[in-house]
């Protein structure tokens, strides 16, 4: 009877392992974070003159910093042991159907809404513009007939206005929650 291949013990059955080089870089970042924490804790006052050293503000975060450094070294040496320094410098194989362009477009639109629109426009309008722009850009297809394009844009506009209106109505009017 054919058996489904079992994944490495450290991963969930639906996950794929990463190349060890990624772990080495991650370890380096965590090492820097841990070192920075430790350095910042060292700068903090101890309030020793008030009689108690164990309540010093930097004590507990410094402990976390030390543990992060130790764990990052463990991750780094493990990655080296798994061939991170000798592995070919290829990027991990792209997963089928996954798109970084879509990812960056979504991230940019979300950032533009949260940082650029929220607080500068009435919330219903900011939400309507964001939802309209998001849906229109992601549904944009170069060869689409003008009539179909207009229909999709109309649906996006209605969705945007409905979102803005319903969010304001439900959150602000019904549940008395403040909106940005």
């Amino acid at each position: 009877m054919p058996q489904t291949p079992s994944p490495p013990p450290s991963l969930m059955p639906h996950e794929e392992p990463l190349p060890p080089r990624y772990d080495l870089w991650t370890a380096a970042v965590f090492f820097c974070v841990g070192t920075a924490i430790l350095w910042l804790c060292w700068q903090m006052p101890t309030y020793r003159e008030q009689g108690e050293i164990y309540t010093a503000p930097g004590l507990v975060p410094a402990l976390h910093g030390v543990i992060i450094i130790v764990l990052s070294l463990w991750l780094g040496f493990r990655a080296i042991g798994r061939g991170a320094l000798h592995a070919p410098r290829e990027a991990a194989a792209p997963r089928e159907g996954y798109s970084n362009t879509r990812l960056f477009l979504a991230a940019t639109l979300c950032l533009a809404f949260a940082v650029g629109l929220v607080g500068r426009l009435p919330f219903w309008l900011a939400a309507a513009i964001f939802v309209f722009a998001f849906a229109t850009l992601f549904e944009w297809q170069p060869g689409l007939a003008p009539r179909e394009r207009a229909r999709r844009m109309a649906i996006a506009a209605v969705t945007g206005l409905a979102t803005g209106g319903i969010v304001v109505l439900v959150f602000e009017r019904v549940f008395l929650v403040r909106l940005p």
Partner: peptide
């Protein structure tokens, strides 16, 4: 494409509303 922007709008409201700080966004 129509659902995710709505989800993000709700996330923004959810993050802001408890303490009304833009910083939370």
């Amino acid at each position: 494409e129509r659902l995710m922007p709505i989800v993000f709008v709700l996330c923004t409201v959810g993050a802001f509303a408890i303490t009304s700080r833009v910083f939370d966004i």
